[in-house]
Design a protein around this nucleic acid. Sequence first.
DNA 1: TTCGATACCGAACATTATGTTCGAGAAAAG
DNA 2: CTTTTCTCGAACATAATGTTCGGTATCGAA
Lengths: 192, 192
Amino acid sequence: MTQKVDRRIQRTRQLLHKALIELIMEKPYDQITVQDILDRANIGRATFYAHFPDKDALLLGGMDEDHFDIRLYLDEAEIAVDEGKLLPCYSLFRHAQQFYPLYKAMLGGNGIEMVKKAFHKHLVHAIEQRIKRYAPTVSLPLPLVSHYLAGALMSLIIWWLDHEMPHSPEEMDTMVQQIVMLGLERLSHEQS
Amino acid sequence: MTQKVDRRIQRTRQLLHKALIELIMEKPYDQITVQDILDRANIGRATFYAHFPDKDALLLGGMDEDHFDIRLYLDEAEIAVDEGKLLPCYSLFRHAQQFYPLYKAMLGGNGIEMVKKAFHKHLVHAIEQRIKRYAPTVSLPLPLVSHYLAGALMSLIIWWLDHEMPHSPEEMDTMVQQIVMLGLERLSHEQS
DNA sequence: TTCGATACCGAACATTATGTTCGAGAAAAG
DNA sequence: CTTTTCTCGAACATAATGTTCGGTATCGAA
């Protein structure tokens, strides 16, 4: 099934991906030129275009690879920690903490739009699954709730990345769960 | 105080802004070239650069103008409807409904990143004011709550715009207030 | 090890968009 | 009417994209 891929092709793609990731952590994505990638990877111009039609395709092509952990965080074993909760919050912040520079470059305030959109979409889907499983009786349209929560979580992680992780993953998780489940009404009456 | 501006300058800027707005509603912002704007507005190339350093400056320069209502919705009289609530939800959806094509082109899924960021920032600020006034006893960090809510609202309006306004502004407002205040826990117990 | 296939190189080229310059002409302000 | 300044258009420099092609190096299989 798995055809053998020419060693040269593997090497080329690997070098290109590595170079792009490095560059992403150094400067804004839209300021990265194809030439930058070529120089860093020591790959010929023609070769690049023989593999990918453009920069974006190179990035997306690497999303499935091993060193590109962002989208895979949901499939990690660690996600079991968030069992029973509507938002896989703890595992997300844990993972983001572990790969902070990459997360900041990709999802932070000056991150990559393409990645953010993909991530948001992914979140919506994951959250919908959780709502169906853990809170099937909520009497509001499913997509409304899932988009609400996904947007909230996205916004929070961006804020958290931009401010050098002002709280621990545990704290973030606890606080978010409170807002989600209790609502702000109860949260303001329950003050000490 | 208000110096008289040369009539030619007014005319030029007006034409450029109008052309850009039209183009924004026709095709993706990043695909709009300066040349497109010049052709549409019948303005010379040199003239454009005498006024604005680039496309983005033209857009931002128009944010304060009269025909660019998006940021101004918060200052509208209609906002009084949302008095006492943490999210100025009804007035936002009302306004978005009224200027649907423009809102969709600017804030929708394929909207303009710059505008979205400015809008999000604006929302964060507005929400913080409201929290201080209407819910000063909430025992969580202010920016955490404001970013949470702003992200949620952003995500919702994008979803709503992308799906041709599946609910009325009144419905959206009611549902959002429920999630915010009651929390999902109570929302799932209270089912009929 | 040999040999055929194919991936890489690099240099040149076409294309497209950006941003600048400058002098002539038109329109505004007083 | 005169002075000021805004606009025009055309040419130019720059920078990035994407393509083409023949020579060279590397791979995989016999």
